[in-house]
Amino acid sequence: MKLPKIVEDLVQAQNNLDNVAFAACFSETGEMIDEGKPYKGRIAIQDLIAETNEKYRSVMKPLAYTENGTASVLAAEVSGTFPGSPAVLKFHFNIMDGEIQYLKVTG
């Protein structure tokens, strides 16, 4: 499966547990919704990922990717030290100019 470079970069950053590289995939004003909570801007996203990496040590295995204009969805198997691991999650992206503007993670 062919993923856009920014999505590949995000998956690689997560699999390396690199919260700085993960946040760098977002625009300066990018937003991420995780477990129903919004995180706006790279610093907030970086802090969230640092905390979740410390707790859950999650890695992603892409399963499917669909794209429709600037909107896309990545289905990935996520495994780590969280209850119910592994789980298939969906990552709903809005990508513009090679940066993630918006990402919502759903179960």
Results as ranks from 00 to 15, higher is better:
Pro38Glu: 04
Lys2Glu: 07
Tyr39Gly: 07
Gly41His: 04
Leu48Gln: 06
Val105Ala: 00
Ser58Ala: 11
Ile6Glu: 02
Lys104Trp: 00
Asn53His: 11
Ala44Val: 12
Glu8Phe: 05
Thr29Asp: 04
Val88Ala: 08
Leu48Tyr: 01
Gly107Arg: 12
Asp9Gly: 06
Tyr56Phe: 15
Pro86Asp: 00
Ala64Met: 15
Ala23Gly: 11
Gln14Cys: 15
Glu54Trp: 08
Glu28Asn: 10
Thr81Asn: 02
Leu10Val: 09
Thr66His: 07
Asn16Asp: 10
Gly84Ile: 13
Ser27Lys: 08
Gly41Ala: 05
Thr66Arg: 12
Ile45Ala: 00
Gln101Glu: 01
Asn15Asp: 03
Phe82Pro: 09
Asn94Gln: 06
Gln46Gly: 05
Lys40Pro: 07
Met60Pro: 10
Glu35Leu: 09
Leu89Val: 05
Ile43Met: 03
Ala75Cys: 15
Lys37Ala: 15
Val78Gln: 02
Ile33Tyr: 05
Glu31Gly: 07
Gly36Trp: 05
Val78Arg: 00
Gly36Leu: 10
Gly107Met: 06
Pro4Phe: 03
Ser27Ile: 10
Leu63Asn: 12
Asp18Gln: 08
Ala87Thr: 13
Asn94Asp: 06
Ile95Trp: 06
Ala50Met: 11
Gln46Pro: 05
Gly41Glu: 02
Leu10Phe: 09
Asn68Met: 15
Asp47His: 04
Asn19Gln: 14
Ala87Cys: 14
Glu31Thr: 13
Gly69Arg: 15
Gln46Trp: 03
Ala76Ser: 04
Ala13Trp: 01
Glu35Val: 13
Ser58Leu: 14
Pro83Met: 06
Ile95Leu: 08
Arg42Cys: 00
Ile43Pro: 07
Thr106Gln: 13
Gly80Trp: 00
Thr70Glu: 15
Ala21Pro: 01
Ala13Lys: 03
Thr81Pro: 10
Met60Phe: 01
Phe22Glu: 12
Gln12Trp: 00
Glu99Asn: 08
Ala44Gln: 09
Thr29Arg: 12
Leu10Gly: 04
Phe91Ile: 05
Gly107Asn: 10
Glu67Asp: 04
Met96Asn: 15
Asp9Ala: 11
Asp47Tyr: 04
Val20Lys: 14
Ser27His: 06
Leu3Gly: 03
Asp34Asn: 08
Thr66Ile: 12
Val73Asn: 07
Phe82Gln: 12
Ile95Arg: 08
Ile45Lys: 04
Gln101Phe: 13
Ala64His: 14
Tyr56Asp: 09
Leu89Met: 03
Ile95Cys: 04
Gly84Asp: 08
Glu67Cys: 03
Asp47Pro: 01
Met32Ala: 13
Glu28Gly: 06
Tyr65Lys: 15
Asn19Pro: 01
Val88Ile: 11
Thr106Trp: 11
Leu103Met: 14
Ala23Met: 03
Gly107Ile: 12
Val88Gly: 07
Met60Asp: 04
Ile6Ser: 01
Ala13Leu: 05
Ile6Met: 09
Pro38Asn: 02
Val88Leu: 08
Ala87Lys: 12
Lys5Cys: 06
Pro62Ala: 09
Glu77Lys: 11
Val105Asn: 00
Gly84Phe: 05
Glu31Asp: 09
Glu31Lys: 14
Ala24Val: 04
Val78Met: 08
Leu3Thr: 02
Ile95Val: 06
Tyr56Val: 14
Gln12Cys: 02
Thr52Pro: 03
Val7Thr: 04
Gly98Ser: 06
